[in-house]
């Protein structure tokens, strides 16, 4: 059953009425373009994130943590696999085109995967802070998400990311309850990762963002970022860590007397640099991913169906 809409107003009425778009529908081209771009970005981010975690499997201290990183890597690569399938199915780029453009440095992925994880504590900061930011942003997409196949994949991704956050919390508490060296390792990592994690939500949303209008996103970037800061500032402080922001303050009057944590004005230049592949570790990350893709070409080739000689 192919559904069609006479124009964008007709389509908007369908979306506003709680409608869900399916792959066999004759969806408006602007919707297809925007949703495709969003899913491709998400898929790229899952893949780059999975490769980051893979780097730490041999270095994770202890068998149990290796097992966790192995499983998380499989999760992220599996998510990328599902998302590339949903994206490719929209007919704008093949899966191979998406991968080749990513490894050529022509595609975008989350800012946080453009930075270097210096020590094991960085990896814990990623598992605790970055996974939580990604989880919050994915959950907000899942909340509405008018593209059916994406919403179904997100349901599982969000369930699994919730489980990853438990790992992150457990690993953080081990360091927080550890020696002075371990605590200062985490403090250094927090200083490196706080702003990239906060910036993952992106700058304030354009009020005309079509992704909001078409209910792919359910909340603005600034709403999600604000909620994240309110949650994680007091949590990290309660563990005795310091947020790297000299102007951070609690305004008891804010939000009708409910009070809110206010940060310094965010410098968005680092985020913009990552979108141009000009982040501190962008080049190495992309070339490592590209080398990995080249090294595994024989596997893809072996899986290609080949004619059998009679």
């Amino acid at each position: 059953m192919t559904r069609t809409w006479s124009d964008l107003d007709d389509f908007q009425a369908f979306i506003d009425g709680g409608g869900m778009v399916e792959p066999n529908d004759d969806m408006p081209a602007p919707y297809r373009d925007e949703v495709f771009r969003f899913i491709e970005f998400h898929a790229n981010s899952e893949l780059m994130g999975g490769l980051t975690e893979r780097d730490w499997i041999p270095r994770a201290p202890g068998v149990r943590l290796k097992q966790i990183f192995l499983a998380k890597t499989q999760d992220e690569i599996g998510h990328a696999h599902l998302l590339y399938q949903v994206a490719a199915d929209m007919g704008l780029k093949t899966r191979t085109e998406m991968l080749e453009q990513l490894f050529d440095g022509r595609s975008r992925f989350h800012n946080v995967f453009h930075y270097q994880a210096v020590t094991w504590a960085d990896q814990i900061a990623i598992a605790y802070l970055v996974d939580a930011a990604a989880f919050a942003s994915q959950r907000a997409v899942f909340a509405e998400c008018t593209y059916g196949p994406y919403k179904r994949v997100l349901k599982r991704i969000v369930s699994e990311e919730g489980f990853h956050m438990r790992h992150g919390e457990e690993m953080l508490l081990r360091l927080a309850e550890g020696t002075d060296t371990q605590r200062s390792m985490f403090q250094d990592a927090l200083t490196r990762w706080w702003w990239p994690a906060v910036q993952l939500f992106g700058p304030d949303s354009d009020p005309n963002d079509p992704l909001l209008r078409w209910k792919i996103k359910s909340q603005t970037n600034e709403t999600l970022r604000h909620a994240y800061i309110q949650k994680y500032v007091p949590l990290l402080q309660s563990y005795g860590f310091e947020i790297p922001d000299d102007n951070l303050r609690f305004d008891a009057e804010a939000e009708d007397g409910k009070g809110a944590w206010l940060t310094t004005d965010i410098d968005w230049e680092p985020l913009k640099a990552t979108m141009r592949q000009g982040g501190p570790d962008s080049r190495r990350r992309i070339s490592t991913a590209a080398a990995n893709y080249a090294d595994t070409a024989w596997v893809r080739s072996a899986l290609e169906p080949k004619p059998v000689a009679a």
Partner: peptide
């Protein structure tokens, strides 16, 4: 079936050619 390896040890991947949804 599209891949024996899914996002989890206990799941493999498949795809429906009719409604075009990935399935685990």
């Amino acid at each position: 079936d599209t891949s024996p390896m899914g996002p989890s040890r206990c799941r493999s991947l498949a795809y429906c050619d009719d409604c075009r949804n990935p399935v685990e």
